[in-house]
Amino acid sequence: MADLQVKVAGVTFKNPVIPASGAYGFGREYECLYPLSELGGISCKGTTLNGQNGNPAPRVAETPAGMLNSVGLQNAGIDHFIEAELPYLEKQDLVVIANVAGHTIEDCVEIARRLEPTSTDMIELNISCPNVKQGGAAFGTSCQAAEEITAAVRRATTKPLMVKLSPNVTSITDIAKAVEAAGADAVSLINTLLGMRIDINTRRPILKNNVGGLSGPAVFPVAVRMVWQVANAVNIPVVGMGGIATAKDAIEMMMAGASAIQMGAAIFADPYAPVKVVRGMNEWCDAHGVARIADLTGSVQPW
Protein backbone atom coordinates (compact mmCIF):
# COMPACT_ATOMS: atom_id res chain seq x y z
CA MET A 1 0.00 0.00 0.00
CA ALA A 2 1.57 3.23 -1.18
CA ASP A 3 1.18 6.47 0.73
CA LEU A 4 -1.51 8.16 -1.39
CA GLN A 5 -1.66 11.36 0.62
CA VAL A 6 -1.01 14.63 -1.18
CA LYS A 7 -0.92 18.25 -0.08
CA VAL A 8 -2.20 21.18 -2.12
CA ALA A 9 -1.85 24.71 -0.76
CA GLY A 10 -1.51 23.39 2.78
CA VAL A 11 -4.61 21.19 2.53
CA THR A 12 -4.07 17.46 2.99
CA PHE A 13 -5.99 15.08 0.72
CA LYS A 14 -6.03 11.38 1.67
CA ASN A 15 -5.55 10.59 -2.02
CA PRO A 16 -5.13 12.75 -5.13
CA VAL A 17 -8.52 12.05 -6.74
CA ILE A 18 -11.16 14.80 -6.77
CA PRO A 19 -14.38 14.80 -8.84
CA ALA A 20 -14.37 18.01 -10.88
CA SER A 21 -16.82 20.84 -10.48
CA GLY A 22 -20.01 20.40 -12.47
CA ALA A 23 -19.53 16.69 -13.01
CA TYR A 24 -20.50 15.38 -9.60
CA GLY A 25 -23.04 17.78 -8.10
CA PHE A 26 -22.47 17.70 -4.36
CA GLY A 27 -21.81 13.98 -4.30
CA ARG A 28 -25.24 12.83 -3.14
CA GLU A 29 -26.02 11.10 -6.44
CA TYR A 30 -23.16 8.64 -5.97
CA GLU A 31 -23.36 7.83 -2.26
CA CYS A 32 -25.46 4.71 -2.95
CA LEU A 33 -22.52 3.25 -4.93
CA TYR A 34 -19.61 3.98 -2.55
CA PRO A 35 -18.85 6.24 0.41
CA LEU A 36 -17.57 9.66 -0.67
CA SER A 37 -14.81 9.22 1.90
CA GLU A 38 -13.03 6.97 -0.62
CA LEU A 39 -12.20 10.16 -2.55
CA GLY A 40 -9.54 12.72 -1.72
CA GLY A 41 -11.91 15.63 -2.12
CA ILE A 42 -14.82 17.04 -4.05
CA SER A 43 -14.92 20.17 -6.13
CA CYS A 44 -18.53 21.24 -5.80
CA LYS A 45 -20.82 22.48 -8.56
CA GLY A 46 -19.97 26.10 -9.46
CA THR A 47 -21.94 28.48 -7.32
CA THR A 48 -23.03 32.01 -8.20
CA LEU A 49 -24.29 34.62 -5.76
CA ASN A 50 -28.03 34.30 -6.38
CA GLY A 51 -28.49 31.08 -8.32
CA GLN A 52 -29.48 30.77 -11.97
CA ASN A 53 -31.16 28.39 -14.40
CA GLY A 54 -28.37 28.13 -16.97
CA ASN A 55 -28.87 27.68 -20.71
CA PRO A 56 -31.77 26.01 -22.54
CA ALA A 57 -31.53 22.32 -23.53
CA PRO A 58 -30.07 20.51 -25.38
CA ARG A 59 -27.01 21.15 -23.27
CA VAL A 60 -25.00 18.07 -24.18
CA ALA A 61 -23.65 16.50 -27.36
CA GLU A 62 -21.59 13.40 -28.00
CA THR A 63 -18.19 13.89 -29.64
CA PRO A 64 -15.45 11.45 -30.63
CA ALA A 65 -14.04 10.32 -27.25
CA GLY A 66 -15.84 12.99 -25.32
CA MET A 67 -18.70 15.40 -25.04
CA LEU A 68 -19.73 19.03 -25.27
CA ASN A 69 -21.75 20.69 -22.54
CA SER A 70 -23.43 24.05 -22.33
CA VAL A 71 -25.08 23.90 -18.91
CA GLY A 72 -24.18 27.51 -18.10
CA LEU A 73 -23.64 27.26 -14.36
CA GLN A 74 -27.12 26.23 -13.25
CA ASN A 75 -27.05 26.40 -9.47
CA ALA A 76 -29.16 27.41 -6.48
CA GLY A 77 -26.87 30.16 -5.18
CA ILE A 78 -24.25 30.44 -2.45
CA ASP A 79 -26.66 30.57 0.49
CA HIS A 80 -28.28 27.33 -0.62
CA PHE A 81 -24.83 25.76 -0.90
CA ILE A 82 -23.96 26.82 2.63
CA GLU A 83 -27.31 25.87 4.18
CA ALA A 84 -28.30 22.75 2.22
CA GLU A 85 -25.19 21.14 0.74
CA LEU A 86 -22.26 21.96 3.01
CA PRO A 87 -23.71 20.37 6.19
CA TYR A 88 -24.04 17.09 4.28
CA LEU A 89 -20.52 17.29 2.83
CA GLU A 90 -18.98 18.17 6.22
CA LYS A 91 -19.90 14.68 7.42
CA GLN A 92 -18.35 12.82 4.48
CA ASP A 93 -14.66 12.89 5.47
CA LEU A 94 -13.18 14.40 2.31
CA VAL A 95 -11.77 17.78 1.38
CA VAL A 96 -14.60 20.14 0.36
CA ILE A 97 -13.70 22.62 -2.35
CA ALA A 98 -16.30 25.33 -3.06
CA ASN A 99 -16.29 26.44 -6.69
CA VAL A 100 -16.97 30.18 -6.93
CA ALA A 101 -18.35 31.52 -10.20
CA GLY A 102 -19.51 35.11 -10.01
CA HIS A 103 -20.57 37.32 -12.90
CA THR A 104 -18.61 40.28 -11.51
CA ILE A 105 -15.61 40.74 -9.24
CA GLU A 106 -18.00 42.03 -6.57
CA ASP A 107 -20.08 38.82 -6.81
CA CYS A 108 -17.00 36.64 -6.35
CA VAL A 109 -15.82 38.72 -3.40
CA GLU A 110 -19.24 38.47 -1.75
CA ILE A 111 -19.39 34.68 -2.29
CA ALA A 112 -15.91 34.33 -0.76
CA ARG A 113 -16.98 36.45 2.22
CA ARG A 114 -20.02 34.25 2.82
CA LEU A 115 -17.82 31.13 2.64
CA GLU A 116 -15.26 32.59 5.06
CA PRO A 117 -16.99 31.49 8.33
CA THR A 118 -17.97 28.07 6.94
CA SER A 119 -16.18 24.72 7.08
CA THR A 120 -15.28 24.85 3.36
CA ASP A 121 -11.68 23.64 3.12
CA MET A 122 -10.70 25.45 -0.04
CA ILE A 123 -12.00 27.87 -2.68
CA GLU A 124 -11.68 27.17 -6.39
CA LEU A 125 -12.26 30.43 -8.24
CA ASN A 126 -13.75 29.65 -11.63
CA ILE A 127 -12.52 32.19 -14.17
CA SER A 128 -12.96 29.81 -17.06
CA CYS A 129 -16.58 28.80 -17.64
CA PRO A 130 -17.10 28.98 -21.42
CA ASN A 131 -20.90 28.86 -21.18
CA VAL A 132 -21.89 32.12 -19.53
CA LYS A 133 -22.13 35.50 -21.17
CA GLN A 134 -21.01 37.62 -18.23
CA GLY A 135 -17.98 36.74 -16.16
CA GLY A 136 -16.80 33.17 -16.59
CA ALA A 137 -14.04 32.85 -19.13
CA ALA A 138 -14.01 36.63 -19.66
CA PHE A 139 -11.98 36.81 -16.43
CA GLY A 140 -9.73 33.96 -17.46
CA THR A 141 -8.66 35.06 -20.92
CA SER A 142 -6.76 38.24 -20.07
CA CYS A 143 -3.88 38.44 -17.62
CA GLN A 144 -5.08 41.75 -16.22
CA ALA A 145 -8.65 40.57 -15.58
CA ALA A 146 -7.40 37.28 -14.09
CA GLU A 147 -5.03 39.16 -11.80
CA GLU A 148 -7.68 41.67 -10.70
CA ILE A 149 -10.32 39.12 -9.77
CA THR A 150 -7.81 36.85 -8.03
CA ALA A 151 -6.41 39.76 -5.99
CA ALA A 152 -9.91 40.87 -4.97
CA VAL A 153 -10.97 37.39 -3.83
CA ARG A 154 -7.58 36.93 -2.14
CA ARG A 155 -8.32 39.96 0.05
CA ALA A 156 -11.76 38.56 0.93
CA THR A 157 -10.72 35.10 2.11
CA THR A 158 -8.19 33.45 4.38
CA LYS A 159 -9.02 30.04 2.88
CA PRO A 160 -6.62 28.38 0.47
CA LEU A 161 -7.42 29.89 -2.94
CA MET A 162 -7.13 27.86 -6.12
CA VAL A 163 -7.89 29.47 -9.49
CA LYS A 164 -9.35 27.33 -12.28
CA LEU A 165 -7.88 28.28 -15.64
CA SER A 166 -9.26 28.28 -19.16
CA PRO A 167 -7.43 26.49 -21.97
CA ASN A 168 -9.03 28.84 -24.50
CA VAL A 169 -6.13 31.29 -24.37
CA THR A 170 -2.95 31.99 -26.32
CA SER A 171 -0.67 31.46 -23.33
CA ILE A 172 -2.01 29.66 -20.28
CA THR A 173 1.34 30.10 -18.53
CA ASP A 174 0.97 33.89 -18.63
CA ILE A 175 -2.48 33.64 -17.01
CA ALA A 176 -1.10 31.21 -14.40
CA LYS A 177 1.75 33.61 -13.57
CA ALA A 178 -0.71 36.49 -13.29
CA VAL A 179 -2.94 34.69 -10.76
CA GLU A 180 0.12 33.50 -8.83
CA ALA A 181 1.33 37.09 -8.58
CA ALA A 182 -2.14 38.11 -7.37
CA GLY A 183 -1.98 35.70 -4.45
CA ALA A 184 -3.44 32.40 -5.65
CA ASP A 185 -2.28 29.42 -3.57
CA ALA A 186 -2.82 26.92 -6.41
CA VAL A 187 -4.16 26.67 -9.94
CA SER A 188 -6.41 24.00 -11.43
CA LEU A 189 -6.56 23.28 -15.14
CA ILE A 190 -7.92 22.73 -17.68
CA ASN A 191 -11.54 23.81 -17.88
CA THR A 192 -13.29 22.70 -21.08
CA LEU A 193 -12.18 23.62 -24.59
CA LEU A 194 -14.77 25.57 -26.56
CA GLY A 195 -16.30 23.39 -29.27
CA MET A 196 -19.31 22.98 -31.55
CA ARG A 197 -21.29 20.24 -33.29
CA ILE A 198 -23.87 20.61 -36.05
CA ASP A 199 -26.70 18.26 -36.98
CA ILE A 200 -26.16 18.11 -40.73
CA ASN A 201 -29.77 17.10 -41.39
CA THR A 202 -31.31 20.11 -39.66
CA ARG A 203 -28.27 22.41 -40.21
CA ARG A 204 -28.69 23.40 -36.57
CA PRO A 205 -26.08 23.20 -33.84
CA ILE A 206 -26.86 20.30 -31.49
CA LEU A 207 -26.43 22.58 -28.49
CA LYS A 208 -29.10 25.25 -28.06
CA ASN A 209 -26.26 27.52 -26.93
CA ASN A 210 -24.59 26.79 -30.31
CA VAL A 211 -21.21 26.23 -28.64
CA GLY A 212 -20.11 24.41 -25.51
CA GLY A 213 -17.18 23.05 -23.57
CA LEU A 214 -15.40 19.92 -24.78
CA SER A 215 -14.31 17.38 -22.17
CA GLY A 216 -13.53 13.69 -21.97
CA PRO A 217 -10.57 11.62 -23.20
CA ALA A 218 -10.40 13.73 -26.39
CA VAL A 219 -8.88 16.65 -24.45
CA PHE A 220 -6.43 14.63 -22.33
CA PRO A 221 -3.22 15.30 -24.30
CA VAL A 222 -3.99 19.02 -24.41
CA ALA A 223 -4.50 18.99 -20.65
CA VAL A 224 -1.26 17.09 -20.01
CA ARG A 225 0.65 19.61 -22.14
CA MET A 226 -0.87 22.62 -20.38
CA VAL A 227 -0.35 21.17 -16.89
CA TRP A 228 3.28 20.48 -17.78
CA GLN A 229 3.81 24.01 -19.11
CA VAL A 230 2.10 25.68 -16.14
CA ALA A 231 3.85 23.50 -13.56
CA ASN A 232 7.14 24.62 -15.05
CA ALA A 233 6.11 28.28 -15.05
CA VAL A 234 4.78 28.81 -11.51
CA ASN A 235 5.85 27.94 -7.97
CA ILE A 236 2.38 27.12 -6.65
CA PRO A 237 0.81 23.65 -6.90
CA VAL A 238 -1.14 22.62 -9.98
CA VAL A 239 -4.26 20.45 -9.84
CA GLY A 240 -4.55 18.69 -13.19
CA MET A 241 -7.70 17.75 -15.01
CA GLY A 242 -9.04 17.24 -18.53
CA GLY A 243 -9.99 13.84 -19.89
CA ILE A 244 -8.64 11.68 -17.08
CA ALA A 245 -10.49 8.35 -17.20
CA THR A 246 -8.05 5.76 -15.82
CA ALA A 247 -5.39 5.39 -13.14
CA LYS A 248 -2.74 5.50 -15.87
CA ASP A 249 -4.10 8.84 -17.06
CA ALA A 250 -3.99 10.16 -13.51
CA ILE A 251 -0.39 9.04 -13.03
CA GLU A 252 0.57 10.63 -16.36
CA MET A 253 -1.06 13.89 -15.25
CA MET A 254 0.86 13.84 -11.97
CA MET A 255 4.12 13.17 -13.79
CA ALA A 256 3.35 16.20 -15.96
CA GLY A 257 3.30 18.31 -12.80
CA ALA A 258 -0.06 17.88 -11.07
CA SER A 259 -0.11 17.60 -7.26
CA ALA A 260 -3.65 16.20 -7.39
CA ILE A 261 -6.09 15.44 -10.16
CA GLN A 262 -9.76 16.07 -10.93
CA MET A 263 -12.10 13.87 -12.96
CA GLY A 264 -15.27 14.96 -14.72
CA ALA A 265 -16.75 13.49 -17.89
CA ALA A 266 -15.34 10.00 -17.21
CA ILE A 267 -17.77 9.70 -14.30
CA PHE A 268 -20.73 9.90 -16.72
CA ALA A 269 -19.44 6.85 -18.58
CA ASP A 270 -18.54 4.99 -15.38
CA PRO A 271 -19.81 6.28 -12.04
CA TYR A 272 -17.18 4.16 -10.28
CA ALA A 273 -14.33 5.77 -12.27
CA PRO A 274 -12.96 7.95 -9.41
CA VAL A 275 -12.69 5.06 -6.94
CA LYS A 276 -11.23 2.79 -9.64
CA VAL A 277 -8.59 5.45 -10.26
CA VAL A 278 -7.71 5.61 -6.54
CA ARG A 279 -7.29 1.82 -6.41
CA GLY A 280 -5.45 1.68 -9.72
CA MET A 281 -2.99 4.40 -8.71
CA ASN A 282 -2.23 2.52 -5.51
CA GLU A 283 -1.64 -0.72 -7.45
CA TRP A 284 0.58 1.04 -9.97
CA CYS A 285 2.68 2.59 -7.22
CA ASP A 286 3.07 -0.78 -5.50
CA ALA A 287 4.03 -2.48 -8.77
CA HIS A 288 6.58 0.22 -9.60
CA GLY A 289 8.15 0.65 -6.16
CA VAL A 290 6.73 4.13 -5.60
CA ALA A 291 6.31 4.55 -1.84
CA ARG A 292 4.75 8.04 -1.88
CA ILE A 293 2.42 9.05 -4.66
CA ALA A 294 3.34 12.69 -4.09
CA ASP A 295 6.79 11.85 -5.46
CA LEU A 296 5.24 11.39 -8.91
CA THR A 297 4.42 15.09 -9.22
CA GLY A 298 6.50 16.63 -11.99
CA SER A 299 8.63 13.51 -12.31
CA VAL A 300 8.52 13.41 -16.11
CA GLN A 301 12.01 13.57 -17.59
CA PRO A 302 11.59 15.66 -20.72
CA TRP A 303 13.88 15.14 -23.69
Binding site: G22, A23, Y24, G25, E29, Y30, K45, N53, G54, N55, P56, A57, P58, R59, V60, A61, M67, N69, V71, Q74, I206, I267, F268, P271
Partner: peptide, 23 residues
Protein backbone atom coordinates in the same frame (compact mmCIF):
# COMPACT_ATOMS: atom_id res chain seq x y z
CA UNK B 1 -33.84 14.94 -23.23
CA UNK B 2 -30.20 14.37 -24.15
CA UNK B 3 -28.52 13.20 -20.95
CA UNK B 4 -25.10 13.09 -19.37
CA UNK B 5 -24.70 11.44 -15.97
CA UNK B 6 -28.30 10.14 -15.71
CA UNK B 7 -28.45 10.70 -11.95
CA UNK B 8 -28.83 14.45 -11.48
CA UNK B 9 -25.21 15.46 -11.00
CA UNK B 10 -24.26 17.09 -14.30
CA UNK B 11 -27.49 19.01 -14.97
CA UNK B 12 -27.37 18.80 -18.78
CA UNK B 13 -30.87 17.30 -19.32
CA UNK B 14 -32.77 20.46 -18.41
CA UNK B 15 -36.51 20.75 -19.03
CA UNK B 16 -38.78 23.72 -18.38
CA UNK B 17 -41.01 23.33 -15.36
CA UNK B 18 -42.88 25.53 -12.91
CA UNK B 19 -41.79 25.50 -9.28
CA UNK B 20 -43.40 27.76 -6.66
CA UNK B 21 -45.02 29.80 -9.45
CA UNK B 22 -41.70 30.48 -11.19
CA UNK B 23 -40.09 28.89 -14.21
Amino acid sequence: ERMGCGVGACLVCACRTVKDGKE
